[in-house]
Amino acid sequence: MQNKVESMLKPKFAQIKQHIIGKIKSTEWAEHSRIPSENELAEQFAVSRMTARRAVTELSEAGVLTRNQGIGTFVASFKSQSSLLEIRNIADEVKERGGMYSCNPVLLESINAIAPIAIALGVEVDSIVYHSVLVHLENENPLQVEERFVNPKFAPAYLQQNFELITPHEYLCQVAPLTEARHTVEAVSPNAEMCNWLALYNEEPCLQVIRRTWSANDIVSFTRLVSPGSKYRLGGHLTFKHKK
């Protein structure tokens, strides 16, 4: 009864989103199947088409739905999708898809930076840096391994954080707001340790993102993100303005 009351108190567009996600989760609407049009959703929920469009647009931006101009809107591939053009918090990505996010911290430690790490962070070789390895999960299934090296100068309390409650991305944005990021993307073959973290019983290609982030003119972190190719993808949308 309480859940029903809470649902009724939600804005109409949020109710429509919840309805769509529920249909997908129950498998009533399968991957790549066409969903009702905005007009049909507006009529079903007794709202304006603009309200229905907001719900569909937000789910499309979250990678839950895909739009095909002139044809309709469809349930997206069940691969999780992240934007290559912006840095987003993985917990937010999972929640926007209607999933349950959780995290398994594997390692939190201080280390002496070897040459490649020192160069990536812009610090002296053998200086102390923070090192973390986390496994991000969606609906209790491993989705991504995050290995991160952090310059303690910008996040002195990094190792004291509870990363089951806050992601490294969220924490670092609080203490050292990001101003720049550079990344490279490639396909890699996971080693035995990575297969164990990602629960890969049959070795498969993985998507690896190497990313460095800056706050002002200083490098804050150097990160390696690895996800199974069958579960994750990167996407983006660009709009170009042409001079008349």
Rank of each mutant, 00 (worst) to 15 (best):
Gln2Ala: 14
Asn3Asp: 14
Glu6Thr: 07
Glu6Phe: 10
Lys12Asn: 01
Ala14Asn: 06
Ile16Lys: 01
Gln18Trp: 12
Lys23Met: 15
Ile24Pro: 01
Lys25Val: 09
Thr27Ile: 05
His32Glu: 12
Ile35Lys: 10
Pro36His: 03
Pro36Phe: 05
Ser37Pro: 04
Ser37Glu: 06
Glu38Arg: 11
Leu41Tyr: 02
Ala42Gly: 07
Ala42Val: 04
Glu43Pro: 02
Ser48Lys: 10
Ala52Ile: 06
Glu58Arg: 10
Glu58Gln: 11
Glu61Ile: 12
Arg67Cys: 04
Asn68Lys: 15
Thr73Met: 01
Val75His: 01
Ala76Val: 01
Ala76Leu: 00
Ser77Asp: 05
Arg88Thr: 14
Ala91Tyr: 10
Val94Gln: 04
Lys95Met: 01
Glu96Pro: 04
Cys103Phe: 02
Asn104Cys: 12
Val106Arg: 09
Leu108Val: 09
Ile111Phe: 01
Ile111His: 01
Glu124Met: 14
His131Glu: 02
Val133Leu: 10
Leu134Gln: 13
Val135Ala: 06
His136Asn: 06
Asn139Trp: 00
Glu140Ala: 11
Asn141Cys: 13
Pro142Lys: 00
Leu143Gly: 05
Phe149Met: 00
Lys153Val: 12
Ala155Arg: 03
Pro156Thr: 04
Tyr158Pro: 00
Leu159Met: 02
Glu164Phe: 09
Leu165Ser: 03
Pro168Ser: 04
His169Asn: 09
Tyr171Ser: 12
Ala176Phe: 11
Leu178Lys: 15
Ala181Phe: 15
His183Leu: 11
His183Ile: 07
Ala187Tyr: 10
Ser189Asn: 10
Pro190Glu: 05
Ala192Pro: 02
Met194Val: 14
Asn196Leu: 08
Ala199Pro: 04
Glu203Cys: 13
Glu204Trp: 06
Pro205Asp: 06
Trp214Met: 13
Ala216Pro: 08
Asn217Ser: 03
Asp218Ser: 04
Ser221Ile: 01
Ser221Gly: 01
Ser230Lys: 14
Lys231Phe: 03
Leu234Gln: 10
Lys244Arg: 07
